[in-house]
Write a protein that binds this DNA or RNA. Sequence first.
DNA 1: TCTGGGGTCCTAGGACCC
DNA 2: TCTGGGGTCCTAGGACCC
Length: 426
Amino acid sequence: MSDLPSIAIVDANNFYVSCERIFDPRLEGKPVVVLSNNDGCVVARSQEAKALGIDMASPWHSIAAEATAQGVIARSSNYELYGDLSARTVELLGRYTSSQEVYSIDESFIRLTGTPPQVSAIAREIRIATRKLIGLPVSIGIAPSKTLAKLANRGSKTAPALLGVCNLAAYSPAQLTSILQSVEVGQVWGIGGRTAKKLIGLGVYTAAALRDADAAGIRRRFGVVQERVVQELRGIDCLPLEEVHADREQIQFSRSFAIPISTVPELQEVLSVYTQRASARLRRQNSLARLMRCYASTSPFQDEHVTHAVSLAFPDPTDDPVVIYRAALTALGPQLQAHRQYVRVGVSLHEFSSRDTHAALDIFDTNPAPFAAGDVLDSITAKYGQETLGLGLAGFKSNRAWTMRRNMVSPRATTHWDELATVFAH
DNA sequence: TCTGGGGTCCTAGGACCC
DNA sequence: TCTGGGGTCCTAGGACCC
């Protein structure tokens, strides 16, 4: 038995639903779904909801009647709650490893060392701890590469006998091949719908067949990303753990509206709010942006779907909400047409530099220090909340008909004093 | 009436330069 | 009339992920 380091992926089961259940135990054992922003699509389902045949990404409006008749309970997404429970889970996992990559809101890769039985024992301990200390059920897949760990993670969920932990090191080469033969090629991490279709056309139907395919040929036909998948399936670790969470390389803020917008002043208001939110994220990671893209689009589900998009460079990299808003308005404003029914606006920032580096280069700048509107906004909203203060049109809260629809949202039970859970004694 | 949002990486192709 | 070739930078878009 080898004593090599293994990669484990720890993944919370039906994460958003599990978060909702922690603070509302009445949801336990019932079919529950969580909806995307705007109460648009299903983005998380409990086991019971999956069993009823509710698909991921189903538009809620088209299934709501039937689902509620079947007893399905829907919740609007409550990202503040999920984010907080996610952070607690990350901290807990950190106690079991020296090397951790936070891959998404509900998944971490961690490195575990020991013999296969030792590693599996640690994984079982983690499972018990997350359930007991945070309230979340998790599944754990363990293997020599990330891609195989993801595959093991699927196995840990589909085979109840494994009790939520699947360590591929526990299987013989023949058993491993038979496991890979049972996985469709499109289920492999990194192989999406398009590539899967092409692979099937070439006769590559399963994970085992992809593992045994000619790596150079795969590279020629599909590129380096897919070639790495082949190597990873062979147990060769090609995708290192990204331990330090690097700053973002782009920041987007985009939302669909509860109702379409067709007046220019309202679009200006939206741009004002979105540019302020995007620039706040930029300042949080201490970056300046050189490039911005903005777009406004009508519904892709209607005739005459249009998108107006602009891309613009700032003369000097900036994080100033006033500069960014004015630039967005100047560039996108002339394209907006009052008779259109816009359903979505997006702002994205790119090409970052560090705020500190830029300041150091700026010593010969003769302009007096400008009013740092961004810093003032940040310190006030940090203390009193996101909605307390805004610049210009974003400062008014009245009559914002376009904001998100969130009709079934749960309390932010861990981050707001006035929304704490209430316990009743009987 | 009602269809999410935020990322990453890679590649192709045009513009430009020498 | 004749009319190269290679390198780099930039951007848009594809594909994938959760």
